[in-house]
Write a protein that binds this DNA or RNA. Structure first.
Lengths: 250, 250
DNA sequence: AATATGATTCGGCATTATCGAATAATGCTC
DNA sequence: GAGCATTATTCGATAATGCCGAATCATATT
């Protein structure tokens, strides 16, 4: 791990949490002397990864990170394969669809298909949700044993609502169920009033690379078997397109 | 400029251009020995900025850059102010609307309002267009003299189509026109069949921070005065919301 | 099985980044 | 509007750090 590169990424991550920070705030947060931080930040600014507000002197993320993010989406094979099937799933079930991949202890949404009923919704691509509080996360974690152990080895499971699973034993038990079926469920665990059903997606090496989920208002929960089937079919189809030999794989 | 941080960003930029690269390809591109690149890449991988394909060993951008890009959009005041007015502009003119900010010698799209006629379109947020080949770019450059000089000091203006302005004299002349009116025009210069009208957006310090544009099929070009007026009004309104004292400022 | 290609590890060396101290810039207070 | 406080930035000596040649390991190819 090379020190200054590691520090530069931690600076970006700090700015990601706090939007705008003065140099000394960043320095304090990372427990580094201001001149050290300054050197790194200057380099980031030179590349547009960070911009400095002319008036306040504070720093924030810059446009170059947006370009990187956009290119990332373009390179993702999972995304290009999933888009058409996500649309199909949305049409069939009438619910919004999300496709996500793991990012440390979170899931990051790489595609979002709004509810077909035309409800005006926020675009959700790029947002992150704790793995333990989402069906998407559980669907992936069940087939990524290392990641699951790592998460459970941490201090504690992050709680988002009163319904979030925070007990490690209960969590492991749920993962066992997911491993058997390839499907994960969640009711009010991330956001109150929002539940979801997710299916794991595997790639050509039969490893879990992501998950696809429908987002259901809790008022319409639980969903019928046909809807669950549609999620299963979508996850299986996308996996097959990526070259997976069986579903669920693992 | 800190060497290793600079190199790490150049690695990310290389991956941005070539999607997937082997370690030695990256090393060759940056003219560095493979072990040097390896150390940096390892650090990037540890943070999810880059991922390594299990089978081929090749590297590509990772999900962490997407999160950064998403947070960048959230922090941008220009974007939050512009969305509602972009929607209004789209409704009034019937054309797709783009909002962009400068990024080195390009414009990067930070908001895209699709044509209201419901035509299924690619989401364009995050794509970049050369400043000299777009109305958005000209609208910004006219009020950023340093950036314009820097661009013209370069080897030559990038040509995208046969219509792209590549003559420095002609380009300067166009910028003079933009400076007088606050509006920039472009016909087939970036993409054949696509033309646009852009207005400069200024912030509370009366500096150009971005531009808003409508995208017009060349078959409907030129547009009528009312449409041009609508772009002017939108650019002026957004600038005022950001605290600009007059329009065009500069 | 042998070879070639490319990824990764190791470690000594010199470049390089680090950080204390000083300076400049900015904003606040009275 | 002067003086003070806060914060950003520059400079440079120091030694810590990352760099990269050589060796090793893993994988693909013939």
């Amino acid at each position: 791990m090379i020190q200054s590169v590691d520090r530069s990424i931690r600076i970006l991550t700090a700015l990601q949490g706090a939007r705008r920070m003065s140099l000394s705030e960043i320095a304090e947060r990372l427990e580094l002397p201001p001149p050290t931080v300054h050197g790194i930040v200057r380099t980031l600014v030179a590349h547009g990864m960070v911009v400095q507000d002319h008036t306040s002197g504070r720093y924030q993320l810059g446009p170059a990170v947006l370009r990187l993010g956009n290119v990332y989406l373009d390179t993702l094979e999972l995304r290009s394969r999933a888009v058409t099937w996500a649309e199909e799933l949305g049409r069939r079930t009438g619910f919004a669809v999300r496709v996500g991949v793991p990012l440390a202890e979170d899931v990051i949404i790489i595609h979002h298909e709004p509810r077909p009923d035309g409800t005006r919704q926020m675009p959700e691509v790029g947002i992150v949700i704790p793995t333990n509080a989402s069906a998407l996360g559980k669907a992936m974690l069940a087939f990524l044993p290392d990641a699951a152990d790592q998460l459970l080895a941490g201090p504690s499971l992050r709680s988002m609502t009163g319904e979030t699973i925070t007990d490690p034993g209960e969590f492991r038990k749920q993962l066992d169920d997911v491993r058997a079926s390839g499907l994960a469920f969640e009711c009010d665990e991330a956001v109150l009033g929002e539940s979801s059903v997710a299916g794991t997606v595997f790639d050509g090496t039969d490893l879990a690379v992501g998950a696809v989920a429908i987002v259901v208002p809790t008022s319409e929960w639980p969903v019928d078997d046909g809807t669950v089937d549609a999620v299963r079919t979508t996850a299986r189809t996308v996996s097959r397109e990526l070259g997976a030999s069986r579903w669920p794989a693992g």
